[in-house]
Design a protein around this nucleic acid. Sequence first.
DNA 1: CGGAAGATTGAGCGTAGTCAAACCGAGTGG
DNA 2: CCACTCGGTTTGACTACGCTCAATCTTCCG
Lengths: 193, 193
Amino acid sequence: MKQGEILYREGMPAEVLFAVSVGSFKTVVGGPEGTEQIAGFFIAGELVGLDGLSSGAYKSRATALEDSEVCLLAYSSLEQLGNEMPGFQRSLHAALSREILRAYSVMLMLSKLSARRRIAAFLLDLSARHAARGYAPDDFHLRMSRRDMGEHLGLRLETVSRQMGRLRDAGILEVDDKHVRVLDMHGLTKLAG
Amino acid sequence: MKQGEILYREGMPAEVLFAVSVGSFKTVVGGPEGTEQIAGFFIAGELVGLDGLSSGAYKSRATALEDSEVCLLAYSSLEQLGNEMPGFQRSLHAALSREILRAYSVMLMLSKLSARRRIAAFLLDLSARHAARGYAPDDFHLRMSRRDMGEHLGLRLETVSRQMGRLRDAGILEVDDKHVRVLDMHGLTKLAG
DNA sequence: CGGAAGATTGAGCGTAGTCAAACCGAGTGG
DNA sequence: CCACTCGGTTTGACTACGCTCAATCTTCCG
């Protein structure tokens, strides 16, 4: 699917789970206007759509940040597979539980970290996930706008821009619009810690 | 178990899920000191310990807010039951998914709401959950300290105290230490937005 | 080329954090 | 019975961080 297209929206019957195979997505929760919060960004190899499982309808909206592809995993077949192959349902449980932990860590960040440290923690998380997929951990392309970063981190887009600038001035990052190079990974880690 | 006792801590092997039967708990995530965040408060009828499922070890700490009792549900038996009774594993999925949604709504609150509105939203949530268990929705006892409320809402305890005072002055609440009466439920709802 | 959307930077303001003091109730011991 | 402490709560004064409003600049497409 193309950039900007919507994978699912709030209220749609949730019969499938999506595994991102290429590209990336954001998931948005909350009210119609102004009160939106980006629950997470998801890159290739990660699962999207876990929130639909409880009520049978999605409670969030997933949007492609770039041209992307997904695999569909039907919930019903997951259950069936779980019955046939022990350990399969366990991996679905694990995915759900990991999403809970990820949400907890976002809560922690929103609750305790200064704007600068939120940016640092966010970039480190992105870096680690890129590394886990075999990409360079210190050189990547941000797929989302400053506004999107802000709506995930609980900051205004101006604050995001300013703090990125300060990380650049401190010699920790090289920033060219959406392209980011980490010059001082240790410094970045210390900041986020 | 007695007030203040710990149901499980980070790192403990997670073989069971807990259903609160009487009393209440808080779950704490994050670093050893200063960087703690209360992921949630749980009252009778709610499930605690869902975060242990992904890695087999708890990633949070659960503490009794008052003298409490829990039911133990072994994960292994849950899987077995899931195989025998279709629909049983689905309810486990649903519980996990609901916890994800709950975490999302906390994220939304931390990200977008002012201190006053966080307090309002928190009290409303508590009210609704009490009501769901058959207790009065407009008259209840806070089981946690102001500090705990703050550590859940991303606020300092002084701010919690001040904003509660302002809700009292506005005629929305009657506050006597931990005892809260909602005088203007509509006003409270409007505030939480 | 022109228009729109995104990013950067600046100035001023307001909300919540910080530091500090006073208060209150429960529990302990003289 | 009062004095004392200790944890939790309330309230006050000041500060600082991030938000608001606004202007400028860049990039991307038609």
